[in-house]
């Protein structure tokens, strides 16, 4: 199943760190996401996009998971070689389009 069917998401950044948030549509979806979307799953999904060290945070009270990727944006978003500015605002689709069991 596609992660984006269970959750909404948004990308952000601070300096060289990519900051990704998933918010589940309901408790069952959160349980399923929390089981399947490990830091390792997220790392694999991001590997071809922006490799980095993934730290995962659980916020069960808000049905949310966070994935913070240190070093994913070397030099910050303005130092990127991507086309134009702020490519990282689409990075959350690497997670939303990931398939989980």
């Amino acid at each position: 199943m596609r992660v984006g069917e269970l959750a909404v998401g948004r990308s952000g950044d601070k300096g060289a760190t990519l900051d990704l948030t998933l918010v589940a549509r309901d408790e069952a979806s959160y349980e399923r996401l929390a089981r399947a979307m490990t830091a390792e799953t997220a790392r694999r999904a991001l590997d071809g996009v922006c490799p980095g060290t993934v730290t995962r945070y659980e916020v069960p009270g808000l049905l949310a998971l966070k994935f913070v990727v240190a070093g994913a944006l070397p030099g910050g978003v303005y130092a990127t070689l991507h086309a134009g500015m702020h490519w990282q605002k689409a990075a959350i689709w690497a997670l939303l389009d990931a398939e989980i069991d």
């Binding site: 948004r10 949310a64 966070k66």
Partner: peptide
């Protein structure tokens, strides 16, 4: 919730 947790690490 998306905005509350936005960029907070």
């Amino acid at each position: 919730t998306l905005q509350l947790l936005y960029e907070v690490h």
